[in-house]
Design a protein around this nucleic acid. Structure first.
Length: 462
RNA sequence: GGCCCCGUCGUCUAGCGGUCAGGAUCCAUGGUUUUCAUCCAUGUUACAGGAGUUCGAUUCUCCUCGGGGUCACCA
């Protein structure tokens, strides 16, 4: 059974990078009919908040990433950690260290001055005298002093660390008794039955420490997959400063969940030349062995392209529902199909699409002067007036083609080019030179509104 | 600085000793569209550098350079 997990610390919203590792973990579990677990790493009481944890859950919900089973909260597992710390103490694999923070700082400064690497010197490793007064000890694990630690990584391959280069007897429990990150991660991953750890490669250098914990506890290590970072345009680790990294901000900007998922799955992962992946295809095709080794730069050009792709391919009734978040109630609009069909090819975001809807359904109050100048000629009023008369008296006027026929009649009778009526009519209806097909626009707003807008335009510009 | 990871078009990537180095995006041009957008077609642009190994290296090895990550009683 493949068990993956996502283990955020609730210190803020869910960001793009976290979402991508969550997605990878989710997909790999689903692909293998396994489990995708969620663990909230809320041991840092000062920085954690309930709101942040809720924000992560909200983002998961929006994107449809469902986790399995109950959520594990590390803050509720003190007894479990205490038990394993005691076990290591009893077995002599960990020990109390009475060095004060000041002493430790001093040691580090000396080491830096001597250009040595900063590390704990192990002075209490075999201590069995009487401990100094007034010092609450930390608990340190006995890490190997020599030999290699090999991280067998599904993305990076085998990475070998020399114990003497990177290890010291690191702290597993603070003076207040609370356990530290590298300890609880190993304990939880094992206890939760996690078999595949998929996380950012900024954790690669933590992994040897976790392996030390696994070994001391006699736990089997999971498989690791360290996925490369997402960088900003400066090539640095993506951070909250880099603008829109809050996943929920994408909802507000009018991106669809499927867009974001598709965009992220292709950032650092690929399946041949395929660019478009439905959720089902992702679940079917994802494999961490196809994650590439190098960091990728976060760039939203493709995000926009994907979003317009998905908008174009979303059924109108779904689109209408998605547009409700912008205050548009189109579900019962009688020309909904024409309206959305005309607009879905033109918008990069849902928000933009909502704006386009408003542009059509609102009577223009402003006319682009350059457009007026270009479109309105001496015979324009005459042309528009004839068109207006014809639609006023016309029997059937519902479909775009009905309006088109009348435009055609005017063009034929007056022996003019199509642009002679099209350009001024466009300005009259929309106040500018660009927009959807006029026959569509008129069908959407209807006869009365069409007449009103033409009349307005003639009054203003004759 | 120590340790670790990485290096193909601007960007996302394919490639797993022999390819005109492919796709996507972006950009440009042309076509379609009365306009704009869509759509279609075409085009510009890449193997960081240097040594090896090999009949042959983008691909394997080493070095250099460049970038990133990490070195806590944070996670």
């Amino acid at each position: 059974m493949v068990v993956t997990r996502f283990a955020p610390s609730p210190t803020g919203y869910l960001h793009i990078g976290g979402l991508r590792t969550a997605l990878f973990s989710y997909l790999w579990a689903r692909k293998n009919s396994g489990k995708f677990l969620l663990r909230i790493e809320d041991t840092d009481k000062a920085r954690n908040s309930k709101e942040a944890a809720d924000a992560i859950l909200e983002a998961f919900k929006w994107l449809g990433l469902e986790h399995d089973g109950e959520i594990t909260y590390q803050s509720q597992r003190d007894e479990i950690y205490a038990k394993y710390i005691k076990q290591l103490l009893d077995e002599g694999k960990a020990y109390r260290c009475y060095m004060s923070k000041e002493e430790l700082k001093e040691l580090r400064e000396t080491q830096m001055a001597n250009k040595q690497r900063t590390m704990y010197d192990g002075r209490y490793r075999d201590f069995n005298g009487t401990p100094p007064e007034g010092i609450e000890p930390v608990i340190r694990i006995k890490a190997p002093l020599s030999g290699d630690i090999v991280v067998r990584d599904g993305v990076k391959g085998d990475t070998v660390f020399k114990a003497e280069d990177i290890l010291d007897d690191f702290v597993i429990a603070r003076a207040d008794g609370s356990p530290t990150y590298n300890f609880v991660v190993a304990v939880d991953d094992y206890l939760m039955g996690v078999t595949e750890v998929i996380r950012g490669d900024d954790h690669l250098s933590n992994t040897p420490k976790q392996i030390v914990v696994y070994d001391a506890l006699g736990f089997k290590t999971p498989n690791f997959h360290h996925v490369p970072m997402i960088h900003n345009s400066e090539g640095k680790k993506l951070s909250k400063r880099d603008g829109a990294t809050d996943v929920m901000a994408y909802k507000e900007m009018g991106y669809m969940p499927q867009t974001l998922l598709n965009f992220l799955v292709r950032l650092g992962w690929s399946h041949g030349d395929q660019e478009i992946f439905s959720m089902d295809e992702m679940r079917e095709l994802f494999d961490p062995k196809n994650i590439n080794k190098s960091a990728s730069i976060y760039n939203t050009e493709k995000l926009d392209w994907l979003n317009s792709h998905y908008i174009k391919n979303t059924p109108n009734n779904e689109l209408a529902k998605l547009l409700e978040q912008y205050g548009l109630l189109l579900t019962s609009h009688d020309k909904k199909e024409i309206l959305l069909d005309a607009l879905k090819e033109r918008a990069k975001t849902l928000k933009e699409m909502a704006g386009l809807v408003y542009e059509i359904i609102s009577t223009p109050t402003y006319y682009d002067q350059a457009a007026v100048k270009k479109a309105f000629k001496d015979d324009t009023v005459e042309i528009l007036t004839l068109f207006k008369e014809k639609i006023t008296t016309s029997e059937e006027l519902h479909l775009p083609s009905d309006y088109h026929h009348i435009m055609q009649e005017v063009v034929d009778e007056m022996k003019i080019g199509f642009g002679k009526i099209g350009q001024p009519l466009r300005v009259a209806l929309l106040g500018k030179m660009s927009g959807p097909g006029l026959d569509n626009v008129m069908a959407i707003i209807g006869r009365d509104e069409t007449i009103l807008r033409i009349t307005n335009a003639i009054d203003r510009h004759s």
